[in-house]
Computed example of a mutant assay.
Amino acid sequence: MSSIDPANPSRSRRERPAKPALTRQGIIDAALVILHNEGLSRVTMRRIATALDTGPASLYVYVRDTGDLHAQILDALLGPISAAGAAPDGQAGPWRDRLKALLTRYRNVLFAHPEIARMALSTQPSGPNYMAMVDAILALLAEGGVPDKAAAWGVDVLLLYPTAIAVEHGDPRQASRKARDFSSLAARVVAIDAARYPHIARLGPELMSGNGAARSDWAFDVLLDGILAAASHPISR
């Protein structure tokens, strides 16, 4: 008979506490912990399975694939936005300002997680927080007098812009490289051949002007003005 070390007694399976039952929400919660502590690249089925003391195959009963998992992560990250609804941060004021504030909050979530932004470009999110955000956008467009059809089509454009910007600029690991690229581009614009590229030469300072916040605010205004203008014309089905 083998001896048992009293300082480190072995335990039979019957003596071990039962593991919590696997659930979809439990898997998402574990993924969020890994995301915040280790980054999205470490949010894999295998890593989550290890954290939950189970096998990767058992997770697929609750999560379709990695894309589905990332979509659920995005939805969880949008929780504060959906909770704020059509009045983020308790804002009052014009509907346009409240809508731009909501879209900016969405952009900031994606800026913090550019890999999730890339997923949002190729996958249609449909979680409850995402749907609540879309509903808040539609409510603000209705408040602004945008007809239903224009609002229904316009919401896609309004969400596409901050998503694309987050993909382009959101990765902090690329910040120094992008700064170098911008400086190089600015130098090329200053020295550009005016005979060959007359409009770039004329508008060079304006092309390179404006910080990110100013351009983003202007872009949202352009999109909203376009939606309002398009609403006055018949929309073919």
Rank of each mutant, 00 (worst) to 15 (best):
M119H: 15
G212E: 14
V189F: 13
R173G: 07
Y161T: 12
P88Q: 01
A231D: 06
D193Y: 07
A86D: 09
S41I: 07
L78R: 01
A21E: 12
G55R: 14
I227P: 00
M119R: 13
A7L: 15
Y60M: 07
S176C: 02
L103F: 07
M1C: 14
A117N: 08
L22T: 02
V157I: 14
D225T: 12
D75G: 03
L159S: 03
G55V: 10
G226Q: 06
N37S: 14
I27K: 07
S126E: 08
M133L: 15
S236T: 13
V33F: 04
A7M: 14
V155L: 08
S232G: 10
T44M: 00
G79V: 03
A101E: 07
N37H: 08
K100F: 06
A112M: 05
D156P: 00
S209M: 01
P114E: 02
A139N: 02
A30Q: 09
P234Q: 11
E168K: 07
D135M: 07
A49F: 10
P88G: 07
A112I: 01
P162H: 04
R11W: 11
S10A: 13
R202D: 12
R107H: 13
V109G: 01
L223G: 03
D217V: 00
A76Q: 11
D53H: 09
I227C: 02
R96G: 02
P94V: 08
I192V: 15
D221Q: 06
V63E: 00
A21H: 08
I116S: 06
D29S: 13
A136V: 02
A166F: 07
D5W: 11
L102Q: 03
L160H: 07
A57N: 14
D171T: 03
R16W: 09
R13N: 11
A87W: 00
P205W: 12
L141W: 07
I235D: 05
L224E: 08
P20E: 09
I28P: 06
L110T: 05
D225A: 09
P9C: 10
M1W: 11
A231F: 05
G226H: 06
G79E: 14
A142M: 00
A83P: 02
A186P: 00
T104R: 02
R188N: 10
A30S: 15
T163V: 11
D89Q: 01
L102H: 01
A92M: 05
L40Q: 05
D217S: 10
V109I: 14
R188Y: 03
H36T: 05
S232L: 09
G26F: 02
F220T: 01
A7S: 13
D193I: 09
L40I: 12
A49D: 04
Y106A: 00
A57K: 14
N8S: 14
P80R: 12
M119K: 08
